[in-house]
Structure formats: C-alpha cells, structure tokens
Design a binder for these strands. Structure first.
Lengths: 159, 159
DNA sequence: GTGCGTCAGTTGAACTCTCAACCACCTGCA
DNA sequence: TGCAGGTGGTTGAGAGTTCAACTGACGCAC
C-alpha cells in the first residue's frame, strides 16, 4: 500500500478538461440533433456507421464495436429505430446466432437530411476552436488513449 | 444552403477518437469506482469538488458549474447522496433561494478511501498512455474546446 | 452424436438522466 | 408598496442506460 501518485498540474488540467468536454460536447450535439430530428447522438452514430458499411448492414456485435457500446445498449436502440422504420433486423444466413442490422431507405434519408447540420455542429462546437496542428495532435493523442482503453479498437484498424 | 464542409482525414480521426474516449473512459472509471464503493464517476466528482471547496460546501449552482452538469441532474444526485449520509443540504443564510450542499464527514471518509484507487485508474486507463508532452498538449487543446463550449467555464478561471 | 463451454443477442427490472412545469424568493422600478 | 421579470432550485414523468439472467446456436472433445 504505497502512497498514490497524485496528479501534477498538467495532468490535472488535462483530466478536468477531458471530463468537462465529456459531458458538455455530447450534450451540445444531442441538443442540435434532437432539435433537427428527434435523434440522439448515439442514434445518429449507429445509423452513420451502418451507412458507411458495405451493403449498409453489420452484425450487431460489429456495430456495437463501432459505436463503442455494449450489445445491450445497442439492442435497445436498434429496437427503437426499427419501430421508426429506419432499421431492420435480419438473421445471418451463415450463423444463426448472428443478427444483422440493416439501414433501411427511410433511415438513409433521415441520415442524409441530418448530416449537414450535424457536421456543422461538430465544427462549431469543437473543431473550429482548434488549429490544423491542434487537430492533428488531438487525433494522435486521442488514438493513443483509445488504444489504451481497447487495444484492438476498430478505429485503429485502418490508420 | 451551401454544400457542407465535410471532415478531412485528421478531423475525422480526432472526432472519432474523442467520441470513443467519451463512451469508454467514463465506463472504465465507473466500473472501477462502482466495484470499489458503489459510486459513479459523477457521484465521485460531486464529492471531490465539495472536498476542495473552502468549508467543504458550495451552492448548488456553483457545484453544477464545477461538475458541468445541469441543476436538475445534480439535484437528483444530491438527494441520493444525502440519503447515504454523505452530503447535507442547508439553506443559505443570506439568500433564501440558495441551497448549499455540504460534504459530511462520512462523505469525506468515503472520498478518502476511494481516492487512491480512482487516481490510479485515471493513470492506468488514460494518463499512462501519454508522454509528458502529450499531457501538456492535451491540456492546452482540451481547454480550448472547453472555452468554445462555455466561454466562462470554471476550469478556465484560474490558469 | 452427445455433452459442455462459449458466443451472439435479447429481455426486464432497477436505476439515471432529461425535460418541462413549478415554487419561492429576490430585484428593480413605477 | 406592489408587481413583473429573473434567479435558484426541486420535482415527476418519460426516455435512456446498465446489469444480470436467460435463450439458442455453434464447435470441439471424446
């Protein structure tokens, strides 16, 4: 039971800033998306990830990985989005354990309608505060943190 | 209605990384705190902010500002923590609209017991992935983002 | 081919958060 | 002095999230 290493000034600043961003940034983006189309940031992301996948579908577990969420959370949300006609669940032909989530045309249309406003909000609330250099640094540092939290996270697969 | 400015490669990397950190980091710290003492990261932070305040109390609105939360969310949580005997609400002598939240001795004891494990988790899950330089960069960039989201956020008051 | 451990996903209950409505009090101003 | 508007805070309902328990299906071992 050794004395814990408390945080130094920069560590504390970095941690407090991250903590604040963590609550304020999703809140701001949620507000914009909810006003524009009664959609949460998480809902949006689920659909965005599907829209970028080949064939616009993914197994539930892969979709959970790409949204950094639990399967349980995803399952509840997919049920909700399915009721709105934006998504569809289908059994996987090769493995009966697997369910795939497909982005329906109505979901794609919603996404297309929402995307410009959302991207603009991401810029206004976040990216516009930074220089090009900052953005590159943040990408690098952010990916280090992601790697620490999950060493084979999908966002590390490409780059 | 001009064409939206889509994200370039670094912007996309930075945004996706931040989004992932945003869901995974609180989840990891919540898990540790919940295992150690049935406390959420937000609960912990509420008590930590009070412990650092002079006299170990703050008006609800100031506490909300320091935890980047809504007054409503804070009020519910304070009610919960009050039931556990860790906090106490008191009326403000000078202004009857104001309620102050006081950290009780039992709350302070809980915090002291939890702090070493929590700080260690912050290091393991996050800071240890970074160099000194990274931490300084992140602090600087993070504070820029915070400023963009709330230009007189309390963490900007000191530095 | 039967049995056992694991994997993919779902569900319901308990808990948390958000949103809007509300109350009490303070402030300024006529 | 009295009332209009703003501030600080609480509450309840509804939406969302987590956790643990559960179902089926795969796959390998014998």
């Amino acid at each position: 039971m050794t004395e814990p290493r408390w945080l130094n000034a920069d560590e504390r600043r970095a941690w407090l800033a991250l903590l604040s961003i963590n609550t304020m940034l999703p809140a701001a983006l949620d507000t914009q998306l909810h006003a524009a189309g009664k959609v949460s940031l998480f809902d949006y992301n689920v659909m965005a990830m599907l829209s970028e996948a080949e064939g616009r579908f993914l197994p539930m577990s892969e979709l959970a990985a790409r949204t950094s969420s639990s399967l349980s959370r995803l399952s509840h949300v997919v049920t909700k989005l399915e009721k709105r006609g934006w998504l569809e669940r289908r059994p996987h032909p090769g493995d009966a354990r697997v369910t795939t989530a497909h982005l329906a045309d109505a979901g794609m249309a919603t996404l297309v309608a929402l995307a410009p406003g959302h991207v603009e909000a991401v810029r206004v609330k976040f990216l516009d505060a930074l220089t090009e250099r900052d953005v590159a640094d943040l990408a690098r540092i952010g990916e280090k943190i992601v790697a620490r939290l999950d060493d084979d996270h999908w966002i590390l697969r490409e780059s």
